[in-house]
């Protein structure tokens, strides 16, 4: 219980620092009035807009307003459209999150398949093929593979839709693609962990107890190898969400990546601040979730170092 509280306090402190940094950084990046007003606009117009957006107040006051409102759930209004930031993010974030979850699930599936295959067929053909695929997956830019996939599956074969996010089928190309690229780094990690586990004492004892190889592999070896994959997953999921701009531009996917790009280009302070803050909250929550999952998976973490009997 104390541990959970400590974690929560830590998270709050992190978020506080993030808010300061993003507040300052975004204001250092340029003048939003540039993109909102025609350069020939009059000074009166400039002043009016500046006042309306609250940009004429001293920095400390602006920051105070930002934090105070944020705590009440109000992230301000976008400079360019005037709509509430939370509403705008709310339109785009779910799509990206769903896509990322799908990509992660596919990645985990492929990681399990390929990593296990490589470990079990160590140094044989299958292992080498997985190693090559993994290297390819990590070195090919997602963008490039995306374009190929679009050409092959979208244009030539017309199996899947290419862009937009209207139907569930629209999730397939970007989701599978992302999942494949992401799994390439995890697969080798799993392979190596699994190989170490397969040579461990408890696996040996399990075999000597007469457990068949399937049980040994899936019940004992794999479960013990999974914790690293889990940690990686959290990291990768965070990257999927915050780095989605590339995949979103190739597939014209209206997600948070595209939104953040537009917001930054327009120097839309409230929107950029809002996005970064939401990302920070997401990542902090993710790390909490990972801790919980680790504890659920491993009784040593869950129960701690209790008194030896």
């Amino acid at each position: 219980m104390k541990y959970a509280v400590k974690k929560l306090v830590q998270s709050a402190v992190i978020l506080f620092f993030v808010s300061i940094v993003i507040f300052l950084a975004v204001r250092a990046s340029g003048d939003p009035l540039q993109s909102l007003l025609d350069p020939r606009a009059s000074d009166a117009q400039r002043a009016a807009l500046s006042a309306k957006l609250g940009l004429d107040k001293p920095l400390i006051v602006q920051y105070g307003i930002f934090v105070f409102d944020a705590l009440r759930g109000d992230l301000g209004n976008s400079h360019s459209s005037g709509r509430p930031v939370l509403e705008i993010i709310g339109e785009k974030l779910p799509g990206t999150v769903v896509l990322s979850i799908m990509a992660l699930l596919i990645a985990i599936l492929f990681t399990l398949l390929l990593g296990t295959l490589a470990a079990v067929k160590k140094n044989r053909a299958a292992d080498r093929i997985v190693a090559v695929l993994s290297a390819l997956g990590q070195s090919f830019p997602v963008f490039f593979v995306g374009i190929i996939a679009v050409q092959l599956l979208g244009v030539k074969l017309r199996i899947f839709p290419i862009s937009g996010a209207d139907t569930p089928l629209h999730y397939v190309l970007p989701g599978v693609l992302l999942g494949l690229c992401v799994s390439s780094s995890m697969a080798l990690v799993l392979r190596n962990n699994l190989l170490a586990e397969l040579e461990s004492d408890h696996v040996k004892f399990a075999r000597l107890r007469g457990l068949n190889e399937r049980s040994v592999l899936f019940r004992h070896a794999l479960r013990n190898s999974f914790s690293t994959v889990l940690s990686l997953s959290a990291f990768i999921f965070a990257n999927l969400i915050t780095g989605s701009i590339v995949i979103e531009s190739v597939f014209a996917w209206p997600g948070i990546g595209e939104l953040s790009y537009q917001a930054i280009m327009k120097r839309d302070f409230p929107l950029v601040q809002g996005i970064v803050l939401i990302f920070a909250i997401l990542i902090v929550s993710l790390s909490l979730l990972t801790d919980i999952l680790h504890a659920a998976l491993d009784p040593r973490i869950r129960l701690g170092k209790e008194e030896m009997q």
Binding site: N224, D298, P299
Partner: peptide, 23 residues
């Protein structure tokens, strides 16, 4: 063999601390 190991001939391993699955 699967029946032999554990069923007809059993092993008591050297290091009990690492011979059981910690999970």
């Amino acid at each position: 063999l699967l029946h032999y190991n554990g069923g007809r001939v059993a092993v008591i391993p050297q290091d009990p601390m690492t011979s059981l699955d910690p999970l």
